[in-house]
C-alpha cells in the first residue's frame, strides 16, 4: 500500500468518525473537505445540553438552539443581527404609554421593566390566585390591560402583544426556566401531560412522538428539537417575524393534521404549563431565532 492511499484511508476513517460525532472536533485535522450533506453539517456541532432535573423523561435537556445551524445560532447570538430584537424598542415605548379608561400604563404599576420584569417570564405560566388558574405571559399582559388599565386586550399574534411578551421575556434572558408545578397548579400539569402524550390528527401523533422519542434526528432535512419553549416568542426564519408559542403549537397541530386548539384556551394553558416544566433549568433565550 502506498503512503498516499494509506493517508487517504486514514482521513476517510477519521472523517467518518467525525461525521458521526465519535470524535471531538479538535481531532479534525484532515485536510479533506467533509461531504456536503445535511447530516455532515449537523454533526459538525455537538449539541450542548444541561443535566435534566430528577424525574425528567430526558437525561439531558437541550434548547432548540442546539439543533440549529451555525448561521442560525450566530444570528441569535448577535443582538444586532437577531431580527427579534426589533421588538424591544417599540415595546419599551408601549410600556410607558398610558392607555385605557384608568389612565395607566404598564409602568404605572410595574415601574422600570428592566428591573421589575427580570425573571418573570422564566416562571410563566404561573398560578394566579385571583383567577384560581395558571396564566401565560401573554394572558397576564392582557389581564393587566383589561382589569387594571381598563384598556382593550391585544389580539393573539398582534405586533403589540408579541412585542410586549418579547420585551418582558428578554428581561429574563439567561435566567433558568423555573415553573412551579406543585400545589394548586398540579392538576393543570397532569392535564397538560395527558395532552402532550395524546395522539391527535390524521397522522395520529402526539408531541412525544417527535420531541421526546426522536429529538436530534432528522425529519426530512430538518432536525427535531426537544420541543422546549425557553426561546419564545421566537423569530422564525420561515415566517420572517416573531412567533408566539401558541402560534408555533398550532403549527405543530396543523402538521399532524389535527384541528389546532384555540388561542388562550384552557387546553393550551395546560399544555404550556407542562411543556415549560419539561425545560426546567434551561436558560431563557427570548427572542430566539429558529428556522
Amino acid at each position: 500500500m502506498s503512503a498516499g492511499s494509506f493517508r487517504a484511508m486514514l482521513s476517510a476513517v477519521s472523517l467518518a468518525a467525525w461525521a458521526f460525532g465519535f470524535m471531538p472536533s479538535s481531532v479534525l485535522a484532515v485536510d479533506a473537505k467533509p461531504p456536503v450533506t445535511a447530516a455532515a453539517t449537523a454533526a459538525a456541532y455537538v449539541p450542548k445540553g444541561i443535566p435534566a432535573p430528577p424525574g425528567s423523561v430526558f437525561k439531558t435537556l437541550f434548547s432548540g438552539y442546539q439543533f440549529r445551524s451555525k448561521d442560525t445560532r450566530a444570528m441569535q447570538d448577535d443582538d444586532f443581527s437577531n431580527p427579534g430584537m426589533l421588538a424591544l424598542d417599540p415595546a419599551a415605548t408601549e410600556w410607558t404609554k398610558v392607555d385605557g379608561a384608568a389612565g395607566k400604563s404598564c409602568s404605572s404599576c410595574h415601574g422600570d421593566a428592566t428591573k421589575t420584569m427580570k425573571g418573570v417570564s422564566a416562571t410563566m405560566p404561573k398560578w394566579n390566585a385571583r383567577l384560581k388558574r395558571p396564566v401565560t405571559l401573554e394572558e397576564q399582559i392582557n389581564f393587566c390591560r383589561t382589569d387594571y388599565m381598563k384598556a382593550q386586550p391585544w389580539k393573539f399574534k398582534s405586533d403589540d402583544l408579541t412585542n410586549m411578551a418579547t420585551y418582558i421575556g428578554y428581561q429574563s434572558r439567561g435566567m433558568p426556566v423555573h415553573v412551579k408545578v406543585d400545589g394548586p397548579i398540579s392538576p393543570w400539569v397532569a392535564r397538560g401531560k395527558a395532552l402532550y402524550y395524546r395522539r391527535i390528527g390524521q397522522l395520529d401523533m402526539s408531541c412525544a412522538n417527535c420531541h421526546e422519542k426522536y429529538y436530534g434526528k432528522h425529519i426530512r432535512a430538518d432536525t427535531l428539537s426537544q420541543g422546549q419553549t425557553n426561546d419564545f416568542p421566537t423569530y422564525r426564519l420561515k415566517a420572517q417575524h416573531l412567533v408566539p408559542l401558541e402560534q408555533r403549537l398550532q403549527g405543530c397541530m396543523k402538521n399532524v393534521r389535527a384541528r389546532p386548539y384555540k388561542p388562550f384556551s384552557k387546553r393550551f394553558l395546560a399544555l404550556e404549563v407542562y411543556i415549560a416544566s419539561r425545560g426546567e433549568g434551561l436558560p431563557v433565550e427570548t427572542p430566539g431565532v429558529r428556522n
Binding site: V36, A38, T41, R68, S69, K70, D71, T72, A74, M75, S81, P83, A221, R236, L237, K238, A239, Q240, N291
Partner: peptide
C-alpha cells in the same frame, strides 16, 4: 453563504 440554508426565507 451557507452550503445548506436552514430556511430559504432568511439566508445569511
Amino acid at each position: 453563504l451557507p452550503q445548506i440554508a436552514e430556511n430559504g426565507n432568511t439566508v445569511p
